[in-house]
């Protein structure tokens, strides 16, 4: 019954993964929102989770952050089972989430939002240095540091949401729909930042509805459908995968004529859901 497939780890990978999800099932609002999903994120990777609305992408992130309780399965982070921890303990271990809808603390200033992002830390000098670093990365936040976060534009709020998540110095950053509701120009800016974070070594799990953009900026991807992971592989492969193209990329012909795929075993047993 399970469409579970062993997560694809590059053959050269010998270290243990930073995050490993095994057979995770979550019930949410009376339905089975996640059905035995398994995925792996190695240190330094950008992994994306794509799929339609309601496929379970945000549920996956919310479960990793311990906002939701799994019915079954485990989440191993840095060789440690975090399945039973509290949300704040997960943050202390180094997993930060920039949640869907940006979740600003609207009545607090930009600066206070950033400081609360560093709530788990105590070294003031380091926190101050990190705030300067975020201001360097997002100059517009610096200009608006005293403004209430609720007065920022959508793009600025998204920048603040990412900057705030980074303030806890996460080893794993969970980004939920960073492009949602933003103008194309701003989206490009946000993804430039994501690439920059990737280059600086931050491990990222990126949830996106904009599959094209997500796959262009990720190392690997997982496709979710109705609470299951149905396809996974290298982002560069997924972007040319017929099923992915048909379902999520608007079914336009590939931009580059590629030879037929040479490694069909990567997708064994996963046809037929569309």
């Amino acid at each position: 019954m399970s469409v579970y497939e062993s997560p694809m780890v590059p053959a050269t990978e010998t270290t243990t993964p930073l995050l490993q999800i095994r057979d995770l099932s979550v019930n949410y609002g009376g339905i089975q929102a996640l059905q035995e999903i398994s995925l792996v994120i190695n240190a330094g990777e950008v992994v994306t989770l794509i799929g339609a609305n309601g496929a379970g992408k945000s549920t996956t992130l919310r479960t990793i952050s311990r906002l939701l309780h799994p019915r079954h399965g485990e989440i191993i982070y840095d060789n440690r089972d975090i399945t039973k921890l509290r949300p704040d303990e997960v943050v202390r271990l180094g997993i930060a989430q920039s949640a869907e809808g940006r979740r600003m603390l609207t009545r607090l200033s930009v600066m206070d939002n950033l400081l609360l992002g560093a709530y788990t830390r105590t070294n003031r000098a380091e926190i101050q240095a990190d705030i300067e670093q975020q201001f360097g990365r997002f100059p517009r936040l610096k200009e608006r540091s005293k403004q209430l976060a609720g007065t920022l534009s959508g793009g600025e709020q998204q920048m603040l949401a990412i900057a705030r998540a980074l303030m806890s110095r996460p080893r794993l950053l969970l980004l939920d729909e960073p492009s949602l509701g933003l103008a194309p120009l701003i989206v490009r800016e946000i993804f430039a930042i994501i690439r920059e974070l990737h280059a600086s070594g931050v491990t990222i799990l990126l949830v996106e509805q904009n599959a094209q953009l997500a796959l262009q900026n990720a190392d690997r991807g997982y496709v979710m459908e109705a609470g299951r992971i149905t396809i996974n592989g290298l982002a560069a492969d997924l972007i040319n995968d017929d099923r992915v193209r048909k379902a999520y990329l608007g079914d336009v012909p590939p931009p580059v004529k590629l030879p037929p795929r040479a490694a069909p075993e990567e997708k064994n047993g996963l046809f037929g859901l569309r």
Binding site: R86, L116, Y119
Partner: peptide
């Protein structure tokens, strides 16, 4: 104070507060 800001955060949005590492309980 930091704890006061955290109180304001929990007051506005307890979920976000816990995602920032605030022990809401």
């Amino acid at each position: 104070t930091k704890i006061g800001k955290a109180l304001q955060a929990v007051s506005e949005d307890a979920t976000t507060a816990s995602l920032l590492g605030i022990d809401t309980d």
